[in-house]
Computed example of a mutant assay.
Amino acid sequence: MARVKRGSVARKRRRQVLKNTKGARSANSKLFRSAQQHNMKALRYAYVDRRNKKREARRQWIVRCNSATRLYGIGYSQFINQLAKSQVRLNRKVLAQLALSNPEDFKNILQLVIEND
């Protein structure tokens, strides 16, 4: 069997791992073995936090909608229930943006929903 020399491939892989862990502290950015472990953990956290980011965004939209609806004397859950009954197809993201940027439009939607009850 022929001998396989893989010095350049291994060096490239190690260089890439060290480049990815550039901002880490102490040996995690200097030594390959600990840098590789640090990199694997960082990638795992990145994967998880991409999902958590969506969760946090939805949570923020709900808080904004709730605070906007409470100004007009209705709770968030009642508001969402009335939206569903009146078949208004606006998601929470759009409602939160309306509550922040166009409070008059949000008020109109709220009145439309309450009237259909």
Score class of each variant (00 low, 15 high):
Ala2Glu: 08
Arg3Ala: 06
Lys5Met: 11
Lys5His: 14
Lys5Ile: 07
Gly7Trp: 13
Gly7Ala: 10
Arg11Met: 04
Lys12Ser: 02
Arg15Leu: 08
Arg15Lys: 15
Val17Cys: 03
Leu18Arg: 08
Lys19Cys: 10
Lys19Arg: 14
Thr21Phe: 14
Lys22Cys: 07
Lys22Met: 11
Arg25Cys: 07
Arg25Trp: 02
Ser26Gly: 06
Ser29Thr: 06
Leu31Val: 03
Ser34His: 01
Ala35Phe: 06
Gln36Glu: 11
Gln37Tyr: 14
His38Trp: 00
Asn39Phe: 09
Asn39Ile: 00
Lys41Ser: 04
Ala42Asp: 00
Arg44Val: 15
Ala46Arg: 10
Tyr47Ser: 14
Val48Cys: 02
Arg51Asp: 13
Asn52His: 14
Glu56Lys: 10
Trp61Glu: 00
Asn66Ile: 09
Asn66Tyr: 07
Ser67Leu: 12
Thr69Tyr: 14
Leu71Ser: 04
Tyr72Asp: 03
Ile74Ser: 05
Tyr76Glu: 11
Ser77Gly: 02
Asn81Val: 04
Gln82Asn: 09
Ala84Arg: 15
Ala84Phe: 14
Lys85Ile: 05
Gln87Phe: 08
Val94Cys: 13
Leu95Thr: 10
Ala96Glu: 05
Ala96Asp: 12
Ala96Ile: 08
Ala96Leu: 05
Gln97Ser: 03
Leu98Ile: 00
Ala99Tyr: 03
Ala99Asp: 07
Leu100Val: 05
Asn102Ile: 12
Glu104Thr: 03
Glu104Gly: 12
Glu104Val: 09
Asp105His: 00
Phe106Tyr: 06
Lys107Tyr: 10
Lys107Met: 01
Leu112Ser: 14
Ile114Arg: 04
Glu115Gln: 10
Asp117Met: 14
